[in-house]
Amino acid sequence: MGLLVEQVVNGLQFGVLLFLLSAGLTLVFGIMGLVNLAHGSLYMLGAYFAVWFAGMTNSFVLGLLLALAATAAVGVVTELVALRTLYRRNSLEQVLGTFGLVLLFDEAAKVVWGPAGLSLAPPEWLSGQVSVLGVPYPAYRLAVLAAGMLVAAGLYWLVSRTRAGMLLRAAASNRSMAEALGVNTRVLFSLVFALGAGLSALAGILAAPLLTVHVGMGEEVLLLAFVVVVIGGVGSIRGALFGAVGIGLLDTLGRAYLPGLLRGVFSTPVADAVGPALSSMLIYVTMAAVLLVRPEGLFPIQRRAEAGRVVSAP
């Protein structure tokens, strides 16, 4: 029971991080129609900047704020210089172009911070344990969960209750119509991209104390974020939230319990060999199944007139 509680909270916390990462991705993907592989690089940069600035200022919170600003700045410059020209290209060309950016960012990180992994200690006031339903649990992980939920709530408010959010939804459902009605989509896109970059960076910063900060961490998690976006429905914040929490729980619980379940069915050596692979496969099997039944994802946003344009093939 204690293990189950711990794994569920772990899954939720992982899901929340995934949500921060996929929220930006789904907006950029859904509204601008851009398949951005470099989104994971911003996550990585956020983590590296956090280690850097936290070390300089000796304060986690200051480091977080500075890293957030620095990564958002990198994101905005990237959008202005490179990505803006990619919006109207087909998805394959976008993959090629943004993969070039991934190589650039990875190598740049290697040059600046070296090939070895870095670590970041959580702030002192969050380094202890707290009790969750009677189970001791690291306070920092719980704080990540809380912070993620707070940001999710803020994002929900922004998208569904503010004027900016209304314009954003309008552009997502029919870009030409929004343009015709006088929405400056170019400025809107830049703002959306900056928002997405910030969210991705925040995920990286919050994740930094939980793992080793290393080159390539962006690509590892990017694929999961894409799974979340596709399962939830491209462009849908609500879909990203449910998708992220679902995938977070599925992945965490799968890894924790699937090998044990298999051991009950197969012989131990077989189960030990197949278990880890099968639990890694679980989310991809889920994604394939979802796509076969509902190619638009579980929570597709409503599109009008130019239906399917954003998600259509080249």
Partner: peptide
């Protein structure tokens, strides 16, 4: 059975 980005992801 799928098209576009769904095909890419699947």
């Amino acid at each position: 059975r799928t098209r576009g980005v769904a095909f890419l992801m699947i």
